[in-house]
Amino acid sequence: MSSDPAIQPARPFTHEGATLIWEARGSGEPTFVLVHGIGMGRTVFNGLSERLAEHGRVIAIDLPGYGEAPEPPRTPTVERLADIVAAFLRSEGIAAPVFIGHSMGTQVITEIAARHPDLDARLVLIGPTVEIGQRNAWTQLARLGRDLLDESPKVFVVGAREYLRAGPNLRLKMRAMLVHKPELAYPRVAGDALVLRGEDDEVAPHAWCEQVASSLPRGTLVEVPGVGHEAMIKNPDPAADRILAWLGITATADATNP
């Protein structure tokens, strides 16, 4: 368990011409590695990071071209993003991480586990994208818009700031997300995997999340009542409680209660 949850200074890591930014807080085991979604950055995990840092080391990442990370010369594919994060973990000597990905971040961490099984990772997929048969920008944006209708001002402020920071290549980044086929990687994930879905999530429908969980050899689906796709921004506690309970670290909440 961590005794010092203070945030350490953010640092860059460069691999084959692309740079990510990472910051850490807490200490001990396990090491949680947090990977954000399309148009976002590591700051969307602030509340969740604070909770998890009470129980281990937490590393939050700005993928190349997001948050404070510089725009790479070419927009990376999801597979390339996975290789960059895997190279970072190896450079830091991090083994057996607990990856937590949100939205597009679930695609990245799935590819890491499938392409780099030696890392011995466990996965938490929060609101996994992108559903088979719905892989076009207008469908995804419409779903996100419906999901945001009932969200708090905090979600809008954080989300708008991060989308602006994602820069002029957001269209290319969206395309990289949409052409990726995570269902090809799910069966190749050897470790335990938790699919975490907000009950009101318009972006990650229940049927799709069930398919994701069943495609993962050791997958489990848990739903959080009364929240949508951006649940961890507005109130990270229900998600944190379920992640920790799934890991057997704490029993402050179970899979059926908010």
Rank of each mutant, 00 (worst) to 15 (best):
P236L: 07
F45Y: 13
M177F: 10
E111C: 08
V224H: 01
V227G: 01
P97Q: 02
A86Y: 03
W208D: 06
L178S: 13
R25E: 07
L178C: 11
I132G: 12
G127P: 01
V195R: 02
P9L: 07
V124N: 01
R143V: 08
L123A: 03
R197H: 02
C209I: 07
T250G: 03
V155A: 05
G41K: 03
I38T: 09
F13A: 04
A86Q: 03
T139E: 12
L196F: 12
L170M: 00
N46G: 12
G105L: 13
E68R: 04
D192P: 04
A95R: 12
R165L: 13
A87L: 04
S3K: 01
L247V: 11
A204H: 09
S215H: 13
I84R: 07
L125I: 08
H116V: 11
I109F: 08
V33G: 10
A95T: 15
L89D: 00
M104I: 06
A190T: 08
V203D: 02
R175K: 14
L63F: 10
T106Q: 10
R11P: 02
Q8P: 06
L149K: 14
R171L: 14
S215Q: 14
S103G: 09
G67H: 02
E230N: 11
A69M: 09
G226K: 14
V158R: 15
A213F: 05
R42D: 02
V124T: 02
F99P: 09
G67W: 00
P128R: 05
L164R: 14
I132Q: 08
C209E: 06
T252Q: 15
A137K: 14
V157P: 00
D120F: 00
Q211L: 08
Y186W: 15
R242K: 15
D241W: 03
L196R: 04
L178N: 11
E92L: 15
F32R: 00
I249S: 04
W138C: 07
W246A: 08
I61D: 09
V155I: 12
V85Y: 02
R42N: 13
P70D: 07
G28Q: 03
G167H: 05
V179R: 13
V155G: 03
R90A: 13
D4W: 07
G39S: 05
E151M: 09
A245P: 12
E210A: 09
P97L: 04
V222P: 07
E162Y: 00
L178P: 11
S3C: 06
E199V: 02
L141A: 14
V203Q: 04
P225A: 07
L194N: 06
V124L: 00
G37A: 12
L194A: 09
A10I: 08
Q134P: 07
P258H: 05
A166E: 01
L48N: 04
D83V: 03
G17M: 08
G47Y: 00
R57Q: 12
L184Q: 15
N235C: 02
A231M: 15
R115A: 13
N257M: 04
L141M: 10
V155C: 01
E223I: 01
Q140K: 00
R25P: 02
H55P: 00
P258R: 11
A60C: 03
E131S: 06
